[in-house]
């Protein structure tokens, strides 16, 4: 443990708990987990494990600031200091997401009608990369992910599941975020594309990205993980 604390942690989760309160169903409480603490250092890839429903995605979303933990804190190393994302003002959370933390979700959620290439360039443009360089980098990552060139100029609404997922991955991997959260990024990919994504994830980890991920595919999990974190131990009975 001491060694871990010596290395600067990129993510510092301290005793978080999550219980959902369903106000419209007689204030039913849905407990998920409690007292979860985890530190993730640069260059680590922590894979969350446990059966479906144990709270892996909930934990990932709590790190991203998408879910509000009922207790505890999630500190991210951002701009030279630790910021607790669970009570940071919205503009700070957005800044963390823009510069420090990328999140590959299971579903692509974007404004309809925008071209794929433009969608992938967006995170770069938001970080003041000039349009020419953004375009080159977006094209490079789309090519690496084997997305057919004919699709680059189209909005992804009509793409297959695997194609949309690759757009989703490209949007995040086009930048080098210090922190990456990955929720089943390879779920709908074929074997060849899965290998490409594994390669991308390993390259990110090797250059010092701190990663937390959920992967149901055992081969993927073993290929990227530096350690496992079993959420089951913190489970609360419903």
């Amino acid at each position: 443990m001491t060694m871990m604390e010596d290395q600067a942690a990129a993510i510092r989760i301290e005793a978080i708990a999550k219980t959902f309160t369903l106000h419209n169903q007689g204030s039913t409480l849905v407990p998920v987990f409690a007292n979860v603490s985890l530190e993730v250092a640069a260059g680590e890839c922590v894979v969350l494990s446990g059966v479906s429903g144990v709270g892996k995605s909930t934990m990932l979303r709590a790190i991203y600031g998408n879910y509000v933990p009922s207790d505890g804190s999630v500190k991210l190393f951002h701009d030279g200091e630790y910021v607790d994302i669970t009570n940071a003002p919205p503009h700070v959370v957005l800044d963390i997401r823009r510069r420090t933390m990328g999140y590959v979700s299971q579903f692509l959620r974007v404004i309809p009608r925008i071209q794929t290439l433009q969608l992938v360039m967006e995170p770069l443009l938001e970080n003041s990369v000039d349009a020419g360089e953004a375009k080159d980098r977006a094209e490079a990552i789309l090519a690496m992910l084997n997305l057919p060139k004919a699709l680059w100029g189209l909005p992804p609404a009509t793409f297959s599941g695997g194609e949309q997922q690759r757009v989703n991955i490209a949007r995040v991997m086009v930048r080098e975020y210090p922190v990456l959260l990955l929720d089943e990024p390879t779920a709908s990919l074929d074997a060849a594309n899965r290998q490409t994504v594994i390669k991308l994830m390993n390259a990110a980890r090797d250059r010092g990205t701190a990663m937390v991920g959920i992967f149901h595919d055992e081969a993927v999990r073993n290929a990227v993980a530096t350690r496992f974190f079993d959420v089951t131990e913190y489970r609360l009975a419903a």
Binding site: L22, H23, R61, G65, N66, Y67, V68, P90, V93, L94
Partner: peptide, 15 residues
């Protein structure tokens, strides 16, 4: 934050 309010609404009415 928009995604937080919509994905993890805290108030009964938002839910």
């Amino acid at each position: 934050l928009t995604d937080q309010v919509l994905d993890d609404p805290q108030h009964g009415y938002t839910q």
